[in-house]
């Protein structure tokens, strides 16, 4: 039955399109499009010199309810994370993605902060991750699953803190895809574009943050260039 369905559907499609195309040319066009993965229309707003890109990213992220802070010294990050937790009256515990950058931070300088690496559990209130890229166009973070990043970290905890090196800030989604391809590890199981904290307007069209994903998204922009 399964094969019948497949050949049935593809057969109907072929009968409809065949008369309208040259088969060899069609196959070549498809192969070419997939190989080139050309960009289509790219908004001018995202084609900016780096300094303005930072400004745009910050503005767009804040417009959707994320908070953004600049960091110049990575050694400051454990302090900033700890302060963030205490400012929001959160327990001094953070679940951290086992990313080399995050593992290399001097966590011992804030001994009262409980740090655990790995995927999120149901009890975690706060997570810290990096991102593959930040997309200035809409203030979007691009996260990819792998041994250094768990998808649950971006969805289970109520508070998500992201450390984004400015060297990973790009203008457009397309540049983000190129950065991902350049890693040479193929398409990960999960790529998440995250734009602000979770939200819903399903009850009386009233916008509310904190639906099922995090209610707070805090972005630390690390000046590494």
């Amino acid at each position: 039955m399964a094969d019948d369905a497949r050949s049935g559907i593809l057969g109907t499609i072929r009968r409809a399109v065949e008369g309208q195309r040259d088969e060899a040319a069609a196959r070549a066009a498809v192969a070419d499009r997939l190989a080139r993965h050309a960009r289509n229309v790219i908004p001018l707003r995202a084609q900016l010199p780096p300094a303005q890109q930072v400004e745009l990213f910050q503005r767009m992220a804040q417009a959707v309810g994320a908070t953004v802070e600049l960091v110049t010294d990575p050694a400051r990050v454990p302090h900033m994370a700890a302060d963030y937790l205490s400012n929001h009256n959160l327990p001094a515990r953070v679940r951290v993605a086992p990313d080399p950058l995050l593992q290399s931070l001097p966590w011992d300088r804030r001994p009262m902060l409980e740090v655990a690496f790995g995927r999120a559990t149901a009890d975690d209130q706060t997570s810290l991750t990096t991102a593959v890229a930040g997309v200035a166009e809409t203030g979007t973070l691009m996260l990819a699953s792998g041994p250094d990043q768990a998808t649950t970290l971006a969805f289970l905890p109520t508070n998500h803190v992201v450390l984004l090196p400015l060297s990973r800030l790009v203008g457009t989604y397309e540049e983000g895809w190129d950065m991902l391809r350049a890693r040479g590890r193929g398409q990960p199981r999960t790529v998440n574009f995250v734009t602000g904290p979770s939200r819903t307007a399903d009850i009386e069209q009233t916008p509310q943050v904190h639906a099922h994903g995090p209610g707070r998204l805090h972005i630390l922009l690390l000046a590494d260039m």
Binding site: P188, T190, N192, T195, R199, G213
Partner: peptide
Amino acid sequence: TGQEFSTYTTFSTGPRRADDLDG
């Protein structure tokens, strides 16, 4: 909805990989 971008856009490719932490 008139949003610039929705909050979450997720691309899923196959099941979790051997060294993935979740999925």
